[in-house]
Amino acid sequence: MAGSTKDIDALIELMARLPGLGPRSARRAVLHLIRKRALLLTPLADLMTRVAATARECLNCGNIGTSDVCDICTDERRATGELCVVEDVADLWAMERSGVFKGRYHVLGGTLSALDGVGPEELRIPRLADRITTEAITEVILALNATIDGQTTAHYIADQLGGRVRLTSLAQGVPIGGELDYLDDGTISAAMRARKDL
């Protein structure tokens, strides 16, 4: 009996390593996949094999795609002269979901962190400087997290690129649907400083 479920157990064990899943939820997911073999398991397995063979980092921006240069970088309509710098691919995907930005991206691959030994060399900052020249960039939007590490990195990049191009950063303040009563004092101070005329 144990031998007959060895592969399934191994699959559960692997699934349990995924973010958001533990052993119990992995077991439920695997059971569901097996029950929906034709509808889910087989197509999923095929796709995973294909993605495993083709997924790679874009050589230009660091996005993840299935070719050496991603769709965003090859799309001429996105050569607007605006470049949005993000911390990692998840942030790029979040920006794309919003549909608000029509230019190109640059993924740093992290933030400066003395504690974790991440220095400027570990990030894709030299490549960013190259792209400003080669892609005739006119504005760099620093869409980095509103954390101490994120803003330290933003200031470092600003120092490196200072004078070469227009540099902007995302606004900070009250989120859509946010109630002042529930905001931390730091966010309220930032929002107050960034207030605008109505």
Binding site: A146, T147, I148, Q151, Q172, D184, D185, G186, T187, S189, A190, R193
Partner: peptide, 9 residues
């Protein structure tokens, strides 16, 4: 006290 906003100023 959060000092993040002051630090990010």
């Amino acid at each position: 006290r959060s000092r993040a906003a002051a630090a990010m100023s």
